[in-house]
Amino acid sequence: MRLTVLGACGAWPEAGQASSGYLIEHDGFRLLVDLGYATVPRLLEHLDVDQVDAVFISHGHPDHCADLNPLLRARALRKDPPPPLPVYTLPGALDAVLALDRPGMLDSAYTLHEFTAGSTLGIGPFRTETRPLPHYVPNAGVRLTAGGRVLAYTGDTGPDANVVELARDADLLLAEASYVHEVPADSTGYQSSARDAGRQATAAGVGHLLLTHLLPGTDHAAARAAARTEYDGELGVAVADLVVDLP
């Protein structure tokens, strides 16, 4: 299993960067997990749009799904459009993005598969387990298993027992860490800090923790240091073009 980070900025992209978006590959199957602002140009540096096999969107905030629109446009408006792209998400999460164009314009470009968080899905070679995780809008964390390796991703979430269960013994946990030490009072319970991510990675017995969704301007070294106070395994910060192989 291979992870390529397309973007990892929380809320909005910094100059030259992109919001949350991840390409996950196994046995030639290419799954996109989240497609936030500016991720499609980054995707096109790695592959053409007709080489994407499926998309999984954790929740409906635009820094996680806005670039589904240009991806579908690029598939629908070409002279030789590929088959409809399977798109997996929570009910209603993509209503706003899919309504950006005139009715029917993109209908042939995708097949929407809405699921309830807690469901287990089969997406290509991946066993895909989902969990409801607390955020301002419904959010589904996802656990992907293939080839004996496990990658877990939180989407955006506050600390929660379901994060630990989602990531139990995972080879890699891709964890939202918008803040370094403390989450502001108005976001408590709905977003996480790097320290929270470290604490939950330890509780889950994760082999490798990758912090993501850091807000623009966040000191990456400070985020790593905060997570390190709670977690002593392999640790990093997600940035565009980072590649992690799970052999």
Score class of each variant (00 low, 15 high):
125 P>G: 04
87 V>F: 05
243 V>Y: 12
214 L>R: 14
88 Y>M: 06
58 S>P: 01
129 E>S: 07
139 N>W: 05
230 E>T: 01
123 I>D: 09
221 A>V: 13
25 E>F: 07
74 A>C: 08
176 E>N: 15
25 E>H: 09
204 A>Y: 00
71 L>D: 04
155 G>V: 13
68 L>D: 10
134 P>Q: 14
150 V>N: 04
242 L>K: 13
197 A>S: 13
85 L>F: 01
35 L>M: 07
77 L>M: 07
224 R>L: 15
136 Y>A: 14
175 A>T: 08
158 G>E: 10
67 D>V: 11
143 R>K: 07
135 H>Q: 02
170 A>V: 00
218 T>I: 13
94 L>A: 09
200 Q>E: 05
121 L>V: 03
231 Y>K: 01
3 L>D: 08
81 P>L: 06
13 P>C: 11
200 Q>D: 05
115 F>K: 00
247 P>L: 13
196 D>L: 00
211 L>Q: 13
56 F>G: 03
168 R>Q: 15
210 L>S: 09
63 D>Y: 04
139 N>Q: 12
170 A>L: 02
17 Q>F: 00
204 A>N: 05
86 P>W: 04
165 E>L: 06
130 T>A: 11
97 V>Q: 15
219 D>W: 05
98 L>Q: 07
61 H>D: 04
72 L>V: 03
176 E>A: 15
28 G>M: 02
243 V>P: 01
224 R>I: 13
18 A>R: 01
97 V>F: 05
128 T>D: 02
39 T>M: 05
53 D>E: 09
10 G>K: 12
51 Q>R: 15
138 P>C: 05
104 G>N: 08
71 L>H: 01
161 A>T: 13
171 D>N: 08
199 R>N: 07
155 G>Q: 14
